[in-house]
Nucleic acid binder design. Sequence first.
RNA 1: GACUGCGUAGUUCAACGGAUAGAAUAGAAGUUUCCUAAACUUUAGAUAUGGGUUCGAUUCCCGUCGCGGUCACCA
Length: 590
Amino acid sequence: MHLESILKEEIRNAVQACFQVEIDDLVLQPTKKEFEGHYTLVTFSLTRALKLPPAAIGERIGEALVKASGVISAYNVIQGFLNLSVRDAVWLRLLEGMGEGYGNLPRTGKKVMVEFSSPNTNKPLHLGHLRNNFLGDSVSRILTAAGHDVVKVCLVNDRGIHICKSMLAYRELGNGETPASSGLKGDHLAGKYYVAFDKTCKEQIAGLIAAGQSPEEAAKNAPWMIAAQQMLVQWEQGDEEVVALWKKMNEWVYNGFGETYRRIGVTFDKTYYESDTYVLGKDLIEEGLARGIFYKKEDHSVWIDLTAEGLDHKLVLRGNGTSVYITQDLGTTELKHKHFGPDRMIWVVGNEQDYHFNVLFAILKRLGRDYAEGCYHLSYGMVDLPSGKMKSREGTVVDADELVAEMEQTAENRTRELGKIDDFTGEEARQLYRALALGALRYFLLKVDPKKRMLFNPEESIDFQGHTGPFIQYTYARIRSVLRKAEANGIAGRLAPEGFTLHGPERDLLHHLVHYPDRVQDAAAELSPALISMYVYELAKLYNQFYAELSIFADPDPAAVSLRVLISEKVAETIQHAMLLMGIDVPERM
RNA sequence: GACUGCGUAGUUCAACGGAUAGAAUAGAAGUUUCCUAAACUUUAGAUAUGGGUUCGAUUCCCGUCGCGGUCACCA
């Protein structure tokens, strides 16, 4: 039974009965807090069809509904708004219908592939990567709950000039340093030499400019820049020494990434490496050339004219026959499709690449790939600092590992201050700190609409109070405490008997609770964990109000006590489910 | 410059074209012999700007101003 569908049907019937008119687009919305009611029908839009003032329409429909409806107990009309109140018996029946895991929707049989994370192996992860990882991870969980079969994929950027830069700096300055010898995490070690390369290279360029070269010439002629390019050529030729260095440093980086992924709780079903896929796509170029979709210039470079799509002429293969980014992406997409045959492919990639994906999808369509229709770029906004954009080379980044460690420290300090878990073992306490730290961080990054850019101020640490992960975790822990007490006293959650009158806070909670599956559906359709975060925040807030206003165990009516225990169980279950969709664990105590 | 996205309380975020624009935080004032005060209650505070469409605009259209992003034979 779906309340809103039933309500809309009843309203249609009422309109039919009163006015003998068929109406299909009804505007039904939740009633604003300051007014009496649960659902509001906006009657302005009906004035044309029914040829009556909005308030009169509201009165007629309201009257008819109260007479005939199985769900509406009362109505009131304010101008063009018809506010409808739902019977308590209906809320109780809906509560009864909430089975185990009611947030999990029926299986659809559709397969969805989500590609995210896609790190470069020349530097450690930063805050921007965390947004990407959490988004991809959470969207995957939401799609799974919405009934799809999800494949999580990571494409590692393990080759190219940027990798050679850190390799070169390491060869020149490294003195055989290893993660073991320096105690530095592998990805941080590589990042250190990436920054070192940039520094030295800039000095070299400055020197050349001082010696009279133009900035463009100098940038081209800097010795390390030339050396890095040579190194890339050697790598592509399979030069043993270069490949050995590449393997060694990448190994360090993978170990470092592995540790970070473990710490932030992110996993993949399949990892692709660009070093394996970068030559792919050339057969697609051949195919496109043969079919006249691409054209070749005199220098043998291959292009496509996408002006018809409002785009541009775009290079798809270099004059020397080597691949560019788009060539490789075409090939990789074809490969991923061949491996898994998904109905939908989603790329979680920053909005700076909007143009690239427009081109990619346009080319796939031109090539007549039927899966092009199911391709989608989940384009998210950057995480900005008050000072502007983060840049790895310039060291203006918020490092992921450091941030997580800081958050854990904050969680520990705060927990110790409050002193509620003094009986925890060391391991239990560490688990709690980790859950709180990640809860705060994941929630912070997921509560904002993915499409929008967001700001992080490193001066102000992420909050543990208010609209935050720990607020919701706290609410959960408090409910668990209630439920432990109920169990200890032998009180089971039970539905209230027929004719029971709900108290305001109970009614508000049930009203919110029953919409959870709809919100999961919405979040899956929009690919937006932010919708889940808003829902669960509201739920926690409503529970806290319920908790503050009503005593669960002290009520003289045993039916009220059992009902409140049952409501507490359902709220706890829903909070746990929703938080898990964001990849956040909820603690039994905190 | 071309294309593209964004301007909402001091700050960080909300608002299918609908009612008095919601929260959080920072500010002010309260709540604990009672189920966890990481909570609850009260209070003050915002749609960049000028037009247009509409019964009704933060939302849609046009202009202005401000801030990002993209315009590589890098990925």
